[in-house]
Design a binder for these strands. Structure first.
Length: 258
DNA sequence: TATGCAATTTGTGGCGTGGC
DNA sequence: GCCACGCCACAAATTGCATA
């Protein structure tokens, strides 16, 4: 998807990007090979060629930040296709951690194959080291809640590019919270955690603090479901968004190769 | 319930084009 | 060459939303 993207060129918006596709300019290489057929104003065309040469280099060296910096936030989902290898899915739980202080109790991290839990009082400090392995973070409402809290509560700076599924899926017409969208898409949870909410996670941590060890196991299972289920949501959302983009831009001509 | 982000709406300015 | 107009991108202000 990224190679079809021209929105990261300053002065080039959605209309011009679609106009390029309609002219048969599907990729950066197409435009660089035949700039004259782009129909862009001369000054913008010069700028576009410079940015696209830089884009090829950035993609070659796996520089997700180059694109995250230049793309509008609402289009950061386009990063997923090329950068899923450095993507992590993340979700936190909170509760009273010490002396009546509200804080992060559990962080779940999933790279598409392996899931890891980081627990207050046990291994929460290790999360920063593991986060550094990734360049792209996928969350649900994480931009408003999880990631600012990690920065504030744990003092861990979040440098990674981010895709917030709440915003992304809302643009695709899906709203109403993570669990509701999961149900809508037929994603099922284990009996152990089905029906649990974020507030239940707070209560489970309280029970664990009072010595109820199985309560922690259930909390971790809940967090794991929250995190692992982000992956199919991201994959399906990405496929859907790409499909709709082509349909809107090219209702008659059909899809480009991608 | 507070929080913080992005969508939406509205307004502004840059740029290119066409008429004279 | 000048002017008016239209297209387009972008900025500012407001609104809506999901999280534990």
């Amino acid at each position: 998807m990224l190679r079809h993207t021209f929105l990261h060129i300053p002065g080039l918006g959605e209309r011009r990007e679609r106009a390029l596709w309609r002219r048969g300019i599907w990729t950066w290489d197409d435009l660089l090979a035949d700039p004259g057929s782009s129909g862009l104003p001369p000054s913008l065309l010069d700028q576009a060629q410079v940015v696209l040469r830089l884009s090829r280099e950035a993609l070659q060296r796996g520089d997700v930040y180059f694109f995250a910096h230049h793309l509008p936030v609402r289009e950061h989902w386009r990063l997923f296709g090329e950068f899923q290898g450095v993507t992590a899915y993340l979700d936190i739980e909170t509760g009273m951690v010490a002396h009546g202080r509200q804080g992060i109790t559990v962080i779940g991290l999933y790279d598409g194959r392996e899931f890891q839990s980081f627990i207050y009082g046990q291994n929460l400090d290790a999360v920063e080291r593991h986060l550094r392995r990734f360049d792209l973070l996928v969350t649900f409402n994480g931009k408003s809640f999880d990631l600012p809290l990690i920065e504030r509560d744990l003092g861990i700076p979040i440098h990674q590019s981010q895709i917030d599924l709440r915003v992304f899926l809302q643009r695709l017409g899906y709203r109403g919270g993570l669990k509701r969208i999961e149900r809508e898409w037929g994603i099922v949870r284990d009996d152990e955690v089905v029906g649990l909410t974020g507030y239940d996670a707070v209560l489970l941590w309280e029970r664990y603090r009072r010595g109820d060890v199985p309560a922690l196991e259930r909390l971790l299972a809940y967090n794991r479901a929250d995190v692992v289920n982000l992956e199919p949501l991201m994959r399906r959302g990405y496929a859907l968004a790409r499909e709709r983009l082509w349909q809107a831009a090219l209702p008659i001509m059909g899809h480009p190769r991608s």
